[in-house]
């Protein structure tokens, strides 16, 4: 069976910075895989290469069996993507946002309406479908974006920090929807996160990145066991990246959260 995602020495340099260094990774069909790592670890850069937004400097990768460098259109048809930033268009309604995606994936007119209604209902947005997205809370926007990325029933869904900037209730709601998607659709999901509880809740396996390299790979339980008895995933993270999650965010982190918050207002 082909892997949902397979990378082979995938590398991306920006000038002198090696954002992703010789990453070799496999994600199985139907798996929820978490990519963890501190700011600047290379998580977003990895995703951007896998979703054809960024050409690799060297190495190769396939997604849903298609090569990201030579079969871009086939890759794009097979994937859904929710960016790190809140990407729904605030100046359109939820329904209009969904319609744009449905049409760009050429979902036929008869199916389109039903599917948009279904996905609004699935994400708990049925009542606000005709409201401008600008008026939504961050959690609602995230759910809309996931609905939008799932309209064409992709094989592989990429979620870049799906719950950054959300309050605990909204985070739980997003988790719940991700789990339901995995169970209902069997979608392979690759997500990135800074939150260890999120990884533990959602991911069957996690990879920890640090300075562009994959430094650990396994199930949350096996990684914890390797670090020591009674270790948590937090301890694993600290062990491999040398950074303490509770130190508080970097400038980039804060700037981004602010930016997210501003979008919501």
């Amino acid at each position: 069976m082909p892997q949902a995602i397979q990378t082979n020495e995938l590398t991306r340099r920006f000038g002198t910075v090696t954002a992703v260094h010789a990453l070799s990774l496999e994600v199985r069909p139907g798996e929820v895989f978490g990519l963890l790592g501190p700011n600047g670890a290379g998580k977003t850069t990895t995703i951007k290469m896998l979703i054809t937004l960024l050409p690799p400097t060297s190495g190769s990768a396939t997604v849903a069996g298609y090569d990201v460098a030579t079969q871009q259109r086939l890759v794009r048809r097979a994937i859904g993507y929710v960016p790190q930033l809140l990407s729904s268009d605030g100046t359109l309604t939820a329904r209009e946002n969904l319609a744009v995606s449905a049409r760009l994936y050429h979902i036929p007119g008869e199916v389109r309406r039903d599917r948009i209604d279904d996905s609004l209902a699935f994400m708990g947005l049925a009542d606000v479908g005709d409201n401008l997205v600008r008026t939504f809370s961050g959690g609602m926007i995230r759910r809309l974006e996931i609905a939008q990325a799932m309209l064409h029933r992709p094989e592989v869904l990429f979620l870049d920090e799906p719950t950054v900037g959300l309050d605990p209730v909204a985070r739980r709601a997003v988790w719940e929807h991700v789990r339901r998607l995995r169970d209902a659709e069997g979608t392979t999901i690759l997500l990135t996160t800074h939150y260890m509880d999120e990884a533990e809740e959602l991911c069957q396996r996690v990879g920890i990145m640090h300075l562009g390299r994959l430094v650990a790979l396994g199930t949350p339980a096996s990684l914890a066991a390797e670090v020591g008895p009674g270790a948590t995933l937090d301890d694993v993270f600290t062990h491999y990246t040398g950074s303490d999650l509770n130190e508080g965010g970097t400038y980039r982190d804060v700037a981004r959260t602010r930016r997210t918050a501003r979008r919501l207002g």
Binding site: T52, Q84, D89
Partner: peptide
């Protein structure tokens, strides 16, 4: 905002 990325992954 990230709206561009949505278009480009389609």
């Amino acid at each position: 905002l990230g709206v561009l990325h949505k278009y480009l992954v389609s």
